[in-house]
Design a binder for these strands. Structure first.
Lengths: 137, 137
DNA sequence: CTCACTGCAAACATTTTGCACCGTT
DNA sequence: AACGGTGCAAAATGTTTGCAGTGAG
């Protein structure tokens, strides 16, 4: 299903470079603006397409963070995020605990923490079953 | 900013009732379908508007879960969620730890857990400052 | 009479898709 | 020539808004 990358086009390369350059977690259109400074006639669709492909390859991560726009991250290490309710900004957080005081938070810990969300991701009973049946056939 | 509720209209009431009735965490249009069985000519806009108002009042919760559609929950107790990667279904989870084994998970624990996301929500340094300045003026 | 609320349609925001063309192999 | 990739425009998706009308207080 997932297409193989055959070519590292200039567009793809610049998108990846720009995403790696920043520590913010840009949305597709923010990244589009960044990339446009280097490739003025690139189209937003290309940015979306490449973000999809790059995250499909595991070269970047699509953030599963709340908010109406998807955000992307070139830091594929396992880490968590802290999001500002007001402005939507997203910062990194290295953390193994639900207690924010245990977190290694770089310079960002002037955040005033209001809440946290812990969301597990998995396969529900029904989908596990379907998958099992598929495998055994 | 937040409007006061003056009337508990039939629409509002039925929306709230239907949301309370289910343990799934319906999206606006799922809820629209549920409500439509009782008020056939209700409009989707009304559902959206009321969900916004009800969550503004704290009568329901807007889930800050990943995914392209917003989901709503009439269970306003503090609890977490588990989401199926395949079908998008969202179940409740009572949990104080990042370790899923510590979770009180009702009957849902046939989930196969793949990952978790911990997202803190707060006020970033800049927004804290802005807010402080506003208060002191 | 007022005003919160409604349904409807249009607007809006974000993301995806169809298509013709282009460039590498 | 094949085919992955591109730009552009259109479509699709999810949500919000403008507006005229309605009904409870």
């Amino acid at each position: 299903m997932q297409k193989q990358i055959r070519r590292l086009t200039r567009q793809r390369q610049v998108i990846l470079e720009e995403l790696k350059k920043t520590r913010s977690h840009p949305t597709a259109d923010e990244l589009y603006e960044m990339v446009r400074r280097r490739i003025p006639n690139i189209s937003l669709a290309t940015v979306y397409r490449n973000l999809e492909i790059l995250s499909g390859c595991g070269l970047i991560k699509k953030l599963e963070t709340a908010g109406s726009q998807k955000r992307f991250d070139a830091n594929i290490e396992n880490h968590q995020h802290i999001r500002c309710v007001k402005c939507g900004r997203v910062d990194d957080l290295y953390c193994d605990s639900v207690n924010p005081l245990d977190c290694v938070a770089g310079e960002n810990f002037d955040y005033e923490i209001i809440d946290y969300r812990l969301e597990f991701i998995g396969l529900c009973p029904e989908c596990r079953l379907k998958q099992k049946n598929k495998k055994s056939s």
